[in-house]
Amino acid sequence: MDVSNILASHAAKFQSVTVEKETPLDVDTGLLTVTDLTPIDEDSYKSNLEEYLQITARDGIQALVAALYGLPTQPSPDGPLAQLPAPTTQLPRAKPLPKLKPPTKWERFAAAKGIQKRVREKKVWDEERQEWVNRWGKDGKNKEKEEQWIHEVKADAPVDHDPVKAARDARTSRVAKNERQRLQNNARAQTAAGDREERKKDIERTLATTRISTASMGRFDNKLDGEKKLRGVKRKFEAAETSVEQEKQASLAVLSKLDGDVKRARKEKGAGDDVLNVRKAIRNVSKGKGGVALAREANRKGAKSKRGGKR
């Protein structure tokens, strides 16, 4: 049985979907882009520009659509979703690559021990209230102990034992510990990032300020082992005799600082009365209503008094 006739008639019903080009089209399905590297056809370009452009575009897009329909798809309510491969054309990024955060101490420990990270749910079930409550935060479960109305106290508890305070202290100290660990992790990350010297200076500065923060400026404090003597900044003196040129320059620098032309001009332009802060004064007098309201009020008062005079 010869089916070539049937096939031919079937093919005639539809237009072709194949594109033939001298140089193969460069299809980048990842970015939905097709590049046609064929040099343009001068004659058809000159005779009918728009038609020529549309035909070349159609050919290119036909090839792109063929490539897209050849990709594996997933069904979705709006139609098939084609799974795109990674793009072949490299485009520059808009922002630098994100830097990896150095792992915290716990993360390193967990990795060494093989502890999996699991997400704790934010809400927990409260048996008494029969509802889901926050684990922490507003009406948190962790404040349950300190908020309950009756407490069990051991028989041998000291007289001044306050169970509410004890529970609260335990919770706040946990929070403080967490904060301390966070700061330590930050510091560790900073040193890992390479600014070790900066960190060292930072610590020394903090230590120096704490050492002179007592009432006696650190005079009667107990010294720790290996603690060095606190050193301030040494004063430096100019040489008693300098060359004339240097002396002149130094004096001129002082003079220019005292009364520079630019500064003087600026001061004159500003014409501000240094003693009176005008803006503040207006606000005070007008009781915060502003200068315009003040002027209006003054006018009205003037009119009233005039009228009063006539009477």
Partner: peptide
């Protein structure tokens, strides 16, 4: 031009959603 119109890297695209073409050609 690619960055302007189409620079985003996406994992999948809805095929019936392809509606328009921007064609860029160079004169002779």
């Amino acid at each position: 031009l690619m960055d302007f119109f189409n620079g985003e890297v996406i994992e999948s695209i809805c095929l019936p959603g392809l509606e328009h073409v921007i064609s860029v050609s160079i004169a002779s």
